[in-house]
């Protein structure tokens, strides 16, 4: 991995995933250090209803606090935020969250593009976005914005993804990126906290 690509400081990590991403999250979470000093924001495509399921699954695997985002909530370090099903998740300049029930983007709400773009604007070069497994085209436009604002794009190695299409699209379309096997993700995130 090119060390030069890794930012000096990580102020926020956003992870986007679709079909096949849950397995990766379940692999990452038990291995995360509890000293992580930035917020981790997770946007995955899932069906409305059964709201607390993903939150519970992840909370059972980490000492970090895991919670579903509440609108206008302050974004705090060391906390894992889950985008609620059926709302787009946006970030505000005063480091709070906004929810948005507007049209689906890439047939998805929440859309990964929407949150990546919004986070790119707020955290700029101190942002890291990871795109995981999935079978649609969400995430690529968002990662372009992350690149434009100087943030770091990390893509799950499509060969390690249950659904390789989404990360493949990102690999093809995003020039500056880091491609990472699912297996190394937790270690990568832990190292970010030590910078």
């Amino acid at each position: 991995m090119e060390e030069t690509l890794i930012p000096k400081k990580c102020s926020a990590l956003v992870i986007g995933g679709s079909a096949g991403s849950l397995d990766v999250l379940l692999e990452i979470f038990p291995a995360l250090d509890k000293e992580i000093n930035f917020p981790i924001i997770i946007v995955t495509h899932r069906k409305p209803g059964n709201d607390s399921l993903l939150t519970d699954l992840l909370q059972n695997r980490t000492q970090l606090k895991v919670k579903e985002v509440e609108e206008k909530e302050k974004i705090l370090p060391g906390t894992v935020y889950i985008a609620p099903a059926d709302y787009h998740l946006l970030l505000e300049h005063n480091k709070t969250f906004s929810l948005d029930y507007s049209e689906k983007v890439n047939y998805s709400r929440p859309s990964i593009d929407v949150t990546f773009q919004s986070a790119a604007e707020i955290f700029a070069s101190e942002l890291i976005c990871i795109l995981l497994s999935g079978s649609n085209n969400d995430g690529v436009e968002g990662l372009k914005a992350v690149n434009n604002f100087g943030g770091l794009v990390v893509i799950q190695n499509p060969n390690t993804a249950i659904m390789p299409y989404m990360p493949q699209q990102a690999v093809i379309n995003i020039k500056k990126n880091v491609i990472l096997d699912a297996f190394y993700m937790a270690d990568f995130i832990n190292k970010l906290a030590k910078r």
Binding site: K72, L90, E92, S98, D100, S118
Partner: peptide
């Protein structure tokens, strides 16, 4: 209005 949302619109 929430800034992020109105800006996006």
């Amino acid at each position: 209005y929430s800034h992020a949302s109105i800006k996006r619109r």
